[in-house]
Structures are given as C-alpha cells and as structure tokens.
Nucleic acid binder design. Structure first.
Length: 493
RNA sequence: UCCCCUGUAGCUCAAUCGGUAGAGCGAGCGGCUGUUAACCGCUAGGUUGUAGGUUCGAGUCCUACCGGGGGAGCCA
C-alpha cells in the first residue's frame, strides 16, 4: 500500500507513548507525543495545563503550554476535552505532587477538534449503561481503557501459560456442521435467505418482504442440501470436539477464539458472542485436568497483578474495593475440590431454605453455587463427578454407573468460570452413551474414530474469557468487559 | 422465555395526595489560581420514551408498544 507523505509523517511523528514517559522518561529529553485531551486548565498568567491520554496507561501526561508556543492563542481554544493533539517539547521534573515528570510544549498541534457541547464524554462520572450506548467512545474513559489493557494482558498471559508448557495453539472452525455439540442453541449460517429474498422479489415485485414461510429456517421449505455447505451449518458453540482431534495427534493443545450461543439469555454473565479458551490434553485424567485449571487461573491472576498494577489499583479503588484482596486470596490458597455428592450433602445440611430444593440428580442452582463458594468455603471450589443424566454424552462414565467425570470451577462473585471433564475414550461406552442421550452415532463417525484408532484417556475444559475479566476487574456486567457486546436485541457497532 | 424495577435538561437524579418543571455535575461567560475530581459568581439549557385513555387538570393513574436495568433458567 502506498502511503502519502502526510500519512507517513503522522505515523512517524510520535516518538513516545505516555506510559513510557511516565515510568522512565528522562528529564531534559525532547519527545513528541500524541493523544486525546482529557481536561485543560488555564492560568491567567498565560499558560495552560493539558491532561493528555493516549491509552497506554491509566495516568495521563501533564502538558504545559504557554504563549511562547507558536500559535498558542489560536490553538489553545480548540484544545478541549475530546480533541486530539500532538505535542513536541521538553520533559521536565514536575513541581506538582501528582506526577514525576511533565511535558513543556515547544510546539502544539491541534490534530482533531472536538465540540464540547456535543461530545458525549464529560469531565464527570458516567453510568455504565450510558457508556454502553456509546461503545465507540467509551474506551476513552479511565475504566474502559483499563479494561482494554487488562483484557489484552490476559490474552497475552493465556498464550504465555500454554506456550511455556508446550501446548499447541489450534484454530478450530468458527463455522461448523456438527449441530449436535449440545452446548446450547446455535446460530445458523446460511445463504438460502438472500436467495429466497431475491426470488421473492422477482416473483412479487411490489413486495419487499419475502413470505415468512420461505424465510423461516424451521420451515420445511428450507432445503439445506442446496445451501452453501450442502448441509445445515452453524456458528461454533465450542471447539472442544475438534480440539480433541489435535490433542490425540499432536499432543496438548488449546483453542482461543470467539464462541456463539443463540440462547435468549439476559443476564450480567451471558453474551451471545464471547471468547473462550479450551485446552485439551491427552493422557490427562480428571485430577490432572483440575490441577491444570487451578494453575491456569492462578497464573493469569498473578500475571495481571504484576503487569497491570495501575489499572488494578484503579479497579480496587473505583470499581470493587475488595478485588485485590480477593485475587490475592485466590492465588494463595489451594482450590477446594468437592464431589457433587458432597456438595449436595453440604447444601442439605446447611440448615437453610432454598428457593430451589436441593436433590441429588438435579443441577446445582445459582443460589447453591453462590452459597458454596461465597459463604461456606469463601474461596474457589471445584465441583466434580456430576450425575450423568444432567451432563453431555462425551464425559467419562464412572464405575458407579451414576456419575461422570465432569468438573466446574466456581469462584466468588462470578460463579461458574470453567466447565470441563475427562472425555469418554472407550469406544463401546461412548457409543452406548450417544444412544442413551438420544443422539445418532452416525453423526459422530469421526469423533468415534478417535476411539477406534489409538484411543487415549484425555481431558479438557473451557474458560470464559469475559468471566475471567469479571473476576479480575471487579466489574459487574459482562457487557462491560468486551469491547462490543452482543446480546439479545443488541449488536450495535 | 419468565418475574420485578425503570424511562424527567448533555449526564446523574428530585418533584408530597393528581394541581403551572427543580438540583447537582457538565457547558458558555466573568473572576481567581503551578493547576490536577480545582475553586467562586452569573447565564443558557425541557414536546417528562412513543401512542392512546381517565380527569376540570397527568411527570404522577390506566392500557399498549419501544428502550434500559436487575433476578431466574441455559451455560462459559
């Protein structure tokens, strides 16, 4: 791509990021920075304080501009909250108490103006609900800048953790035709709708709306054999089954990508599009799986605490005043492992009434999980060996004939953050389980092949990235820890 | 999908029993100041989500729709 000189100089004009200057900038050096103005305060003695933020850190750089700066009088009027500027000047030690260094401008360029009358972000606190409506501007706020940096760090840490252990990063498909993964409602991927729309317009030139029947994917008029992929295709709800293919050939591996669920969920913990990490390990049994999950969560917490200290301090002060204490607590103690049966015993003998009765064989309700992790143990717990009747077909069946080797990691405040299991690797058991679950073994021919040829015990789990971010940041709504949340009735931006 | 709450100035909210629309912050102007959640004064800013209904009179009560939030289920 050919770049104009002007663009070239815009790109190359910046010599430093603000974070760099605040931590290690040498007084006396000449630097050029660019970013967005948070506030400006004028002194009547003919100079201005500009708080400049370029997104590299929580703290901004204080810029001092006076009337020796060329064009100061005209330029400074446009230097307002939201505008973008580029400043060249000398870094000096600051007499002010709140920063080590500040930038004394020699030149000040107003790159992009911003009308403070209409710029939605003001020099005041905004509600998260309001900021959600301006998701294109919210990363310019302290909170969402910090979330972006922590999210970036966690993503980095995920790769660091697995790569340092020799895991392979595997790209499992986004579009899948195995519509039987059982993890939830799926979004259909089809080109039939635009075809039927075109046909509808041909046949009925007056009407812009195709008939409802021809567009209803559930109606018999849609023939997926004529669709793009020749069969019904969907967005993935999990890369697990494909990850198992690679785990049983190239060894321990992990996926990290977007996942889609078409559930009509309206909660602070659910998204229609979210990011999930799914490691899958050959020769791992359930205990090994639990051990890895615990080490993984602890690693990510430590990594963020070390590398996002300012942002974490901000979350602790402004968002959730116990978040640092909670995280340190989690890192220090071993996760408590209890079987589902033990969990039921604890709940039934807790001496309190439940909105939903506790009974062996039923799923643990949110109130039950919250009691266990927040009140009874007050730390992360791993519940394992769930009743087989309430778990998917691929989980390893225990000898008791009643339970499978499933595990859920539950953490205070967030609830379930990891779900996983040891996989059923015995061909005959898996086949009968597929039938038991009312599924067709034919559909799983390749999955069964893995058990037919060189099967090994293996296990894996899924970590929800956004739920991990809720735990790390203390934020309460999952829609605020992903840049552009997709939820029922909302896919703006 | 179900239950509950909610929609008033740019933002966050108030408005008693149904009786003529208010504050703080933000913004503009002025003052003060090596300031930094700045401070002091003045000014502007409204079809109370939309459409109906009840009433002499509706921000307030009723109905429908739309939006937002919380909880439940599903799960990560």
């Amino acid at each position: 791509m050919v770049r104009s000189l002007e663009e070239e100089s815009l790109m190359s004009g910046i010599t430093h990021r603000v974070a760099q200057l605040l931590s290690e900038g040498e007084p006396g050096s000449t630097v050029t920075v660019g970013g967005w103005v948070r506030t400006r305060r004028d002194s009547k003695q003919g100079f201005s304080f500009i708080e400049l933020n370029d997104g590299s850190s929580m703290a901004g750089l204080q810029v001092i501009a006076d009337n020796t700066v060329p064009g100061y009088e005209e330029t400074i009027k446009g230097v307002q909250t939201g505008s973008s500027i580029r400043v060249t000047g000398e870094l000096k030690e600051s007499p002010g108490a709140k920063q080590r260094v500040e930038l004394h401008a020699k030149s000040l360029e107003l790159v992009g103006t911003s009308d403070v009358e209409t710029y939605p972000l003001q020099k005041k606190r905004h509600s998260f609900e309001f900021l959600r409506e301006i998701a294109h501007l919210r990363p310019r706020t302290n909170t969402f800048g910090a979330i972006a940096r922590v999210r970036n760090r966690v993503s980095h840490g995920i790769h660091t953790f697995f790569q340092s252990r020799g895991f392979l990063y595997v790209h499992t498909p986004i579009i899948t035709t195995s519509d039987c993964e059982g993890a939830g409602e799926m979004f259909t991927v089809t080109t039939l709708l635009q075809e039927s729309r075109a046909q509808g317009q041909e046949s009925r030139a007056e009407s812009q709306e195709p008939s409802a029947a021809s567009l209803d994917p559930g109606s018999s008029t849609l023939d997926y054999s004529t669709d793009f992929f020749g069969k019904k295709a969907s967005l993935t709800v999990s890369g697990q089954l494909e990850a198992e293919i690679y785990a049983t050939s190239v060894g321990p591996c992990y996926t990290f990508g977007p996942t889609f669920r078409a559930e009509n969920s309206n909660t602070t913990r659910h998204l229609a599009e979210f990011w999930m990490i799914e490691p899958e390990m050959p020769f791992y049994e359930l205990d090994d799986n639990m051990q890895l999950a615990e080490e993984f969560i602890k690693f990510l917490i430590n990594d963020v605490l070390q590398n996002c200290a300012d942002d974490m301090e901000f979350f602790n002060q402004r968002i959730e005043k116990t978040v640092l204490e909670t995280l340190r607590h989690i890192v220090e103690k071993d996760f408590r492992r209890i079987s589902y049966t033990e969990a039921v015993d604890i709940l039934t003998s807790a001496g309190r009434s439940w909105d939903y009765p506790v009974e062996w064989g039923h799923n643990l309700q949110a109130e039950h999980e919250r009691f266990l992790t927040e009140e009874h143990f007050q730390q992360p717990i791993i519940v394992y060996d769930y009743p087989r009747a309430i778990k998917p077909f691929y989980m390893y069946c225990n000898d008791d004939g009643k339970t499978v080797r499933a595990m859920d990691v539950l953490v205070p405040r967030v609830g379930e953050i990891i779900g996983g299991s040891q996989r059923e690797h015995r061909l005959d058991v898996l086949e009968s389980r597929i039938k038991e679950c009312g599924l067709d073994p034919e559909e799983y021919w390749w999955y069964l092949d893995l058990r037919r040829f060189g099967s090994v015990p293996h296990a894996g789990f899924g970590l929800g990235l956004e739920r991990m971010l809720l735990l790390l940041t203390g934020m309460q709504n999952i829609r605020d820890v992903i840049p552009f949340p997709r939820t029922p009735k909302n896919a703006e931006f």
